[in-house]
Nucleic acid binder design. Structure first.
Lengths: 244, 244
DNA sequence: TAGTGGTCTAGACCACTCC
DNA sequence: GAGTGGTCTAGACCACTAA
């Protein structure tokens, strides 16, 4: 974080002012995921408020998962955690609820022109060039899910090339090799039945139920960078919540 | 709340002691949904801690949605809110995201013996008597979802009778007529394809995708009282979240 | 007007981390 | 030992609600 512009209170809540200030720094990319932010007394000094007010603001941001804190170390900007994806509710065999490792292959990676629908999702003009990636997830050598990913090509030039190794977590490459910080994702879940090609890839019958996850991933400044559709067998999916 | 046993600090966090104390009062039913609890200074006095500590405990419980507060009035025990059900992500026609009113009919209500599976879910011996209720949900005179409900018969004697009017929210009857407070529910979501009977009831083809919701509802003292399976058309369901 | 929760401050003391 | 966040206290002041 370059410099800390001192905000004063107009008629707003002080702790909200502190929250908004930090939130803007984060979404704008001034504070990047993993960064250490100034300590409570420092923030209090800079912003001319008491440490109690800073503490309240930080507690709220921690609750929103934008920050995390370590006693004795400091306060850090959170990294996105894809373990929070709805897709971790696929168990694929064991219903124990324990996380299951899915090995991934990448049979298709190529440059392509984005369809109207895909381009709309990514907020780019229809016909924009994309890197299209298709991945298959295996558990115990059995294909259990299929991902289709569209990346805005200008942001990840060369991702389509065979030389670039893609690990299980695709986002790791993008962050490391293309300097494209991944900040957050929006997901939506629904159900479909398997069509001919999906069924063939997953080794199931046409008409079997699938759980379908749409994911739109953003970089800093709310810039959409990837749209992804993941389809998996429904028979081992269950998402749990509690109502109060 | 009858009497307030004064808790002292062993070596635990004070605000956790206050939280646990209130939480126990609530799950045990000493404090019922809708009740007004003592004020901050009163709790601080009774429990021999500062108001700041009480405030922190209450804030945590508010965040857990066990309590809610009104400035100038007081702090209350929350009532369960079924609008938080995963099922409100059915839109049935409009994808606007606005809540849509589903009118309900109750074609089947009878006493029945619970199957092994149902009884296990409700933690009662296999063969326990149940009130079985089947409901159909309509939107614009089109059947869009089907609910099957199993209630432990001993807790709702007479619910199977035609004389008992059942409104759209079944739980209202149970709370009002049978003095059975509803405290919380656990839900799990998955997908299936429509079988013969379900397809017939919903007026769709066999093999169409369904979203299936299992719900286990509890009264006070963590007593399971109802198990429910709801099936609805998948084509207008989508559940959204955000990852950070 | 009295009582409630909501905001904000000031400061003591502790536990943890790093040097 | 210095710096960090975590807990706990004490109290001032404000905004809202009710009688």
């Amino acid at each position: 974080m370059t410099q800390w512009p001192i905000k004063k209170t107009p008629g707003k809540l002080l702790y909200k002012v502190v929250e908004n200030f930090l939130q803007e720094q984060i979404t704008a990319g001034e504070l990047a995921p993993g960064d250490l932010i100034p300590s409570e007394p420092q923030l209090a000094e800079y912003l001319s408020v008491s440490t109690g007010t800073v503490k309240k603001a930080l507690e709220n941001l921690v609750h929103q998962k934008l920050l995390y804190r370590h006693q004795g170390k400091g306060t850090y900007v959170s990294r996105i955690d894809f373990n929070n994806s709805l897709f971790r509710f696929f168990s694929y065999g064991t219903h124990s609820g324990n996380p299951v490792r899915i090995r991934k292959q990448t049979p298709v990676r190529e440059l392509a022109i984005g369809s109207e629908k895909i381009c709309q999702r990514l907020h780019v003009p229809t016909g924009t060039e994309m890197v299209y990636i298709e991945r298959v997830g295996f558990r115990d050598d059995k294909a259990v899910l299929i991902e289709q990913c569209w990346w805005v090509a200008d942001l990840v030039r060369g991702l389509e090339k065979e030389e670039v190794h893609i690990p299980d977590l695709l986002y790791a490459v993008v962050v490391d090799q293309f300097d494209l910080p991944i900040v957050r994702s929006e997901e939506s879940l629904t159900a479909e039945i398997a069509d001919q090609t999906t069924a063939a890839s997953l080794g199931i019958a046409v008409g079997e139920p699938l759980v379908v996850l749409h994911r739109l991933t953003y970089s800093k400044n709310n810039l959409p960078v990837e749209f992804r559709i993941t389809r998996g067998r429904a028979d081992s999916f269950s998402y749990r919540t509690e109502i109060r």
